[in-house]
Design a protein around this nucleic acid. Structure first.
Length: 314
DNA sequence: GGTAGACCTGGACGC
DNA sequence: GCGTCCAGGTCTACC
């Protein structure tokens, strides 16, 4: 880190644990995030004023605050931008107490904050790159998006809107997803799709759900995943991996009709309402850790990344 | 409303 | 080395 940079401090609530907040959802493995397991530091380029890239190193030396080392000098307005993005990624402001009252085991191990991206736009693109593809391929697409379009950071909507779908397909190997990503980026930059609308806590999940499905390329699984990324855990994101997990964890035989299993899964997790997704993800994540044989905080992206796929865990 | 096929890529496998 | 098949979620055309 250059000596000409700035260091910021972010206050965190009691019990906040940076490694647990980071290593809680697969997106922490995706570029441009980089988790240094030896130093328990998250390295992440963020966008400052006028979209300039600021490389940050986020660590927790004290229980009540995070230390953010920036490679550039940042003024007050830019520091606020950086803080707000880190706040979103780590869900620092989210109140996990109601969830912990409902799930004693999750409380005991400090599980409750799921890692996400600094912007909803990035979360949507990451969700699209996670659909209909194995996890190592998702890792590759995100790395190539950052390398070829984002100039090292995650591409902004403006950068992606200015890219042709053919170019994206060729350089970033995103396949048919290229058109979906470019259309999304152009809708955002034109103002046709207001992402702030989705972040408004006053909206109900029932209001948000059909609007998510209206986004080209977002189906039921992706919409469910985006709901949890928006802090709404009352919808599940059911995919082939959910089926695999539920069958294994709950001793359910492979059904002849997947729709019946779908309903059974929804019925089972309804007991944790409105935190169905957290309850599901808690089970799944513990299963991953048991399978890998390591605490998620000690995972290495290259070594453990390929484990995140139903086929590998059968 | 339900369903089959296309969309892409990387990896596994057989030859 | 080449061809074929498979996994993965969403969209579209068709019945």
């Amino acid at each position: 880190m250059a000596t000409t940079g700035s260091t910021l401090s972010i206050k965190v609530p009691r019990g906040f644990d940076l490694p647990k907040a980071v290593c809680s959802y697969g997106y922490f493995i995706l570029a441009p995030n980089r988790w240094d397991r030896a130093t328990r530091t998250l390295h992440r380029p963020l966008h400052g004023r006028k979209d300039r890239l600021i490389h940050t190193a986020i660590s927790q030396k004290q229980p009540d605050r995070l230390r953010v080392a920036c490679d550039k000098r940042v003024g007050k307005p830019e520091a606020a931008l950086i803080r707000s993005q880190i706040n979103r990624m780590l869900r620092i402001d989210e109140d996990v107490r109601p969830w912990h009252r409902l799930h004693a085991k999750a409380k005991r191990v400090g599980f409750g904050r799921l890692f996400r991206s600094p912007t909803l736009f990035e979360d949507i693109v990451k969700t699209i790159t996670g659909c209909n593809v194995t996890w190592p391929n998702t890792m590759r697409m995100n790395a190539l998006l950052c390398e070829h379009v984002g100039k090292g950071g995650f591409p902004t909507a403006g950068q992606l809107a200015a890219t042709r779908a053919d170019t994206l397909k060729r350089l970033c190997k995103v396949g048919y997803r290229a058109k979906r990503i470019v259309l999304l980026a152009r809708a955002v930059t034109r103002g046709d799709l207001d992402l702030n609308w989705f972040e408004d806590p006053a909206r109900t999940t029932d209001e948000i759900w059909p609007q998510l499905l209206n986004i080209y390329g977002i189906g039921e699984y992706a919409a469910g995943n985006l709901c949890q990324l928006l802090g709404r855990y009352d919808r599940l994101a059911i995919d082939s991996e959910t089926y695999r997990h539920f069958r294994q964890a709950h001793g359910v035989p492979t059904p002849t009709n997947p729709k019946k299993l779908h309903k059974r899964i929804e019925k089972y997790y309804a007991r944790y309402a409105p935190y169905q997704f957290l309850a599901y993800w808690f089970e799944l994540w513990q299963g991953y850790e048991a399978s890998v044989g390591d605490d998620a905080r000690d995972w290495d992206a290259a070594e453990h990344g390929p484990s995140f796929t139903a086929n590998q865990l059968k």
